[in-house]
């Protein structure tokens, strides 16, 4: 049972999504017709073997890639109808994306990396510095703000990437194997951050190979060869915790 008034318009709605790489005999059907709806505040784990199309799906959801066919509605808006600058705006304001391979900008301090989305949102330097420091503090890296990515451990880099994804307070957080490169301690750190964000009402979709990680989510979707084979909900969408 969902709380009244929470059954609003879905955040994500994909219908019959197909992504084909290449042509003819060598064509790879990374996604073979995926339909999926994610409600606000949901916490979804996507699982599946390597090459099953998880990252492909995630990249499309993050507006980083376009599907071969099928529709994708984000907050009710058909993404294929957005132009280049509207897409930039969507990536900046609506979505926080955590890459499997961190993708921090080299030779640029952790703080500057985290500030980037805010800078592109046109927020004043003093304000964005404050917010970026708060985000770094949240992932426990306030004391590493001036370090360049190559001076940070893998787990720390991943947490900087998480801080960068959440600094603009997007309603939707997409994370492609955010714990894939981390040890169990760092994994716990990152997951507790994600749990906290979900408790505040953020919608989270993450990809993982690990059952312990998926156990944090409310719902687990399994992909096989570009098709959804199971979609299991374990918990209802939690009511928003109002911070004391």
């Amino acid at each position: 049972m969902t709380a009244p008034g929470r059954e609003q318009r879905p955040v994500l709605e994909v219908v019959d999504l197909v992504k084909t790489y290449g042509e003819g005999e060598t064509a790879v059907h990374a996604l073979a017709g995926v339909s999926l709806t994610v409600a606000p505040g949901d916490y979804v784990a996507i699982m599946g073997s390597s090459g099953s199309g998880k990252s492909t799906l995630m990249n499309i959801l993050g507006c980083l890639d376009v599907p071969t066919s099928g529709t994708y509605r984000l907050d009710g808006v058909d993404v294929s109808e957005l132009n280049e600058s509207q897409l930039a705006l969507v990536r900046n304001r609506r979505i926080g994306f955590v890459f499997q391979s961190f993708n921090l900008i080299a030779r640029t301090s952790a703080l500057a990396n985290v500030e980037l989305p805010l800078a592109y949102a046109g927020i004043k330097p003093a304000v964005r510095r404050e917010r970026a420091l708060a985000a770094l503090d949240m992932v426990g890296l306030a004391n590493r703000a001036d370090h360049d990515p190559n001076q940070l451990s893998g787990g720390q880099q991943q947490r900087v990437a998480v801080a960068r994804a959440l600094v603009s307070q997007p309603a939707l957080l997409l994370a492609d194997e955010p714990t894939g490169n981390l040890d169990s301690r760092s994994t716990k750190d990152v997951l507790s951050i994600l749990d906290g964000l979900n408790a505040q009402g953020r919608t989270i979709v993450l990809i993982t190979h690990e059952d312990e990680v998926a156990a944090h989510a409310h719902r687990t979707i399994r992909l096989v060869d570009g098709l959804i084979v199971s979609d299991v909900r374990r918990r209802d969408i939690a009511p928003v915790e109002v911070p004391a």
Binding site: L64, S85, L89, R91, N92, F99, N103, L104, P117, Y120
Partner: peptide, 18 residues
């Protein structure tokens, strides 16, 4: 290197003009 950097910047919502 710069192309990857540009990819990151775009993913974070940098407008093309910027």
């Amino acid at each position: 290197e710069r192309t990857r950097e540009i990819g990151i910047r775009k993913a974070l919502g940098a407008p093309r003009r910027v």
